[in-house]
Amino acid sequence: MISISAVLYSTSLILILLGLYGVLTRKNLIRVVISLDVVDLGVNIFLVTIGYVRDGRAPIYLADAQTSLADQASRMVDPLPQSLVLTAIVIGFGVTAVALTLLMRLYERKGTVMVSDLRGLKW
């Protein structure tokens, strides 16, 4: 019996590794930024999975439910990683926006976004 945690942890690990591989090997800087987003997604899945509880429900109280509030509270998943991920998504968006703007500047200056054509830092 494979646990749900194992599936999600391996998914996040695979996404992180795929993204890192893209960052290390791609020459097109736009693809590097996309790879960074893939890493971001993998880390977010990892964080949410930490809060997983078996048979857990969304950490939201229902006012008109049949069960008592204490009973609902005992079956909730961990809300703390979810709120961390909420922050991480926003920060990831900001990083991507600034990175793509930098790429626009780079393209305007050098006429290319390929790492192999940027010789400013080589000797």
Binding site: S5, S10, Y52, Y61, A63, M76, D78, L86
Partner: peptide, 30 residues
């Protein structure tokens, strides 16, 4: 982490779940 699914909240989130209604009155714990 991935040996088996946890059966209870393991982090500080447990305190957050318990304190949400008394301290904030919100239904959404997050």
């Amino acid at each position: 982490l991935w040996v088996e699914d946890p059966t209870a909240v393991r982090t500080l989130g447990q305190a957050a779940i318990e304190e949400t209604i008394p301290q904030s009155g919100a239904a959404n714990t997050v």
